[in-house]
């Protein structure tokens, strides 16, 4: 395990260097959060129906979504893309380590570091000025943290699969345009999932995207009580494991036909 932990921590330190990007990102995300909150407020004021979620809950949901946005913004890992383009991937294969483990850890660091850098100031600002409430209870808070960790594992496993497909596509431009749109919608980062129509709920509950955002957010606000949280967290973990297995299989296939170009 030690090599993987060392690489995780090195990548983490590397990502922490991009402080300006994190600051700019946080400001943009707060701005978008304000717009989204205003849109939902307008909807709720003009509607007399009873909704599956109160406005307070939607506001919490939006702010958590903004803070954790990068968990659902998929694209190939920039370092892996660079390695594959430049051929430096050759060096990765000269190491006495498991390549998938190595890449998973890279993806994990690339998810965790910027998310933490952006989430902490955003949650503070939203909590102090824009109506984000504290977790429903200490138990909810603890379950939220567990679920957020599971979301990170899932997000990294998904990101690793996308990075591995670069071994076929090289550029990954298509994936990084197309995937965020899909995963934002299906994870609840555009409209909270409980507000989707009844017929969509079944599908959304099964798909993995819910585990990236909706699950931890609803646990946070007590929409899913701490007592009921186990099953949704299990859903996250099972999907993460499935993507890990798929990524391993995909990488093993890629390695059989890989051509390390040039040089």
């Amino acid at each position: 395990m030690r090599p993987y932990i060392a690489v995780l921590s090195a990548n983490f330190r590397m990502m922490l260097q991009y402080r300006a990007a994190a600051f700019a990102g946080a400001v943009t995300q707060v701005f978008w959060g304000l717009i989204r909150v205003m849109v939902f407020e307008a909807f709720y004021r003009s509607s007399s129906l009873v909704h599956p979620m109160g406005l307070d809950e939607v506001v919490d949901y939006v702010w958590l979504g903004q803070a954790m946005l990068l968990l659902t913004t998929f694209g190939p890992d920039p370092h892996i893309r660079e390695m594959i383009r430049s051929g430096n991937v050759a060096y990765e294969l000269t190491r006495p380590t498991d390549l998938y483990g190595f890449w998973y850890v890279r993806c994990l660091a690339a998810r965790i570091a910027p998310v933490i850098l952006r989430a902490v100031p955003q949650l503070l600002i939203a909590g102090l000025f824009f109506g984000l409430r504290a977790p429903a209870s200490p138990a909810s808070g603890a379950a939220w943290i567990a679920s957020t960790l599971a979301a990170m594992l899932l997000s990294a496993a998904f990101g690793a699969v996308i990075s591995i497909t670069l071994l076929w596509t090289i550029s990954g431009e298509g994936a990084s345009r197309f995937l965020p749109a899909v995963s934002w919608l299906l994870s609840g980062n555009i409209i909270p999932l409980p507000l989707f129509p009844e017929w969509a709920q079944g599908v959304l509950n099964v798909l993995p995207f819910r585990g990236l955002a909706d699950t931890p957010f609803r646990i946070y606000m007590g929409h899913i009580g701490p007592g009921e949280a186990l099953l949704p967290i299990l859903h996250q973990v099972v999907w993460a494991a499935a993507f890990v297995l798929f990524g391993r299989w995909l990488l093993a296939r890629a390695m059989r036909r890989v051509v390390v170009q040039g040089g």
Binding site: R2, A6, R95, P96
Partner: peptide, 9 residues
């Protein structure tokens, strides 16, 4: 160098 130490154990 430290990382390589870990990687090669």
């Amino acid at each position: 160098f430290d990382l390589l130490r870990e990687i090669y154990a």
